[in-house]
């Protein structure tokens, strides 16, 4: 994680709103296979990680919390397929438990970001005028606080931990949701069916819920998968820095940090959590790309 949580700020506004229209001309059609491939690969990876995390709720090969000094730094054995860490904990169990934390952080952060960002964006896009100006200036200010910075500051103020990290990551992802929703809303508001709804005496709430939200849902979903990946990376980075999930709860980032001192003799202790993080984020990004190809009318004609 570079901490770089790319908030996909203004670049996103160039994307058209997702509202599938027929008549996608041949010129605008991208390879269908590519989009579908991304979708399948990404989806498979994500589903696997989710399954792993779900299974960890009821079963892990070993209890990942208590230390076992007798069995530390074991290599790959039949009892411990991926070995044990410096405290003698089973790496497979740690990875499974870590998946839970990563996904939890990701889901919670995305939900917070969505709950704040989407209404703000839709409101700004629908109302326009000074409301829009004020809200967008506010997101500008919010965007000036990088995710990692905000999380560390929150950690300093309220104490580091998973909850603090989730809140901070959620807040810092909200502005990109607001921007994406706003640009989507602007596109939808320029459609004649919205004018038709107004001419049919339908109020803003109806228009927002019946026309705007369903039509920007695709954009928001794509943004969610991107933000999810960013949150997973950020959680790992924070745990690595000691500002995320607190011990003894296992987390991929802290596994990396703990394994770092044994890099030369036991490189796999760093590699396994590293691979877990990279694979999860890769899966989420591929899923996001696949969804974009699927939902973006410019990218493909399919709905």
């Amino acid at each position: 994680m570079t901490g770089s949580a790319p908030p996909h700020a203004r670049a996103e506004e160039r994307r058209p709103a997702v509202s599938s229209e027929s008549g996608a001309t041949g010129r605008r059609r991208r390879s269908w296979r590519g989009g579908s491939g991304n979708l399948v690969t990404g989806g498979t990876i994500v589903v696997l990680v989710v399954l792993l995390a779900l299974v960890s709720l009821v079963w892990t090969p070993y209890d990942p919390i208590p230390v076992n000094p007798a069995g530390r730094l074991l290599g790959m054995t039949s009892a411990h397929p991926l070995g044990t860490d410096l405290y003698g904990r089973d790496v497979v169990s740690l990875l499974m438990y870590g998946a839970r934390i990563s996904l939890l952080v990701g889901v919670a952060a995305v939900v917070i970001a969505m709950v704040i960002g989407v209404p703000v964006g839709v409101l700004a896009g629908m109302r326009g005028g000074w409301v829009d100006q004020v809200l967008m200036r506010a997101t500008d200010v919010a965007l000036a606080f990088p995710a990692l910075l905000l999380t560390i500051v929150f950690g300093a103020v309220w104490g580091a931990g998973t909850t603090t990290a989730v809140i901070a990551l959620g807040i810092s992802a909200a502005p990109s949701f607001a921007r994406v929703s706003r640009s989507g809303t602007l596109q939808i508001m320029s459609r004649e069916y919205v004018v038709a709804a107004r001419a049919a005496n339908r109020g803003p709430f109806w228009i927002a819920t019946r026309h705007v939200l369903p039509n920007i849902a695709g954009l928001v979903i794509v943004q969610s998968s991107v933000a999810f990946g960013i949150a997973v990376l950020a959680e790992a980075a924070l745990s690595y820095l000691g500002f995320g999930t607190t011990p003894p709860t296992p987390s991929w980032g802290r596994m990396l940090q703990e394994g770092q001192s044994y890099l030369f003799d036991h490189p796999m202790l760093v590699l396994w959590p590293g691979i877990a993080i990279a694979l999860t984020v890769l899966g989420l990004n591929l899923l996001g790309d696949g969804l974009r190809d699927r939902l973006d009318p410019r990218a493909g004609g399919a709905r």
């Binding site: 599938s20 229209e21 027929s22 004649e192 069916y193 038709a196 001419a199 369903p214 039509n215």
Partner: peptide, 22 residues
């Protein structure tokens, strides 16, 4: 409200005047 029931509009662009998700 009454007036809007009395006045109806047919729009120009058949692509954009119908919500694709309805």
């Amino acid at each position: 409200r009454r007036l809007r029931e009395d006045v109806a509009v047919v729009f120009q662009d058949p692509m954009s005047s119908l919500d694709p998700r309805m």
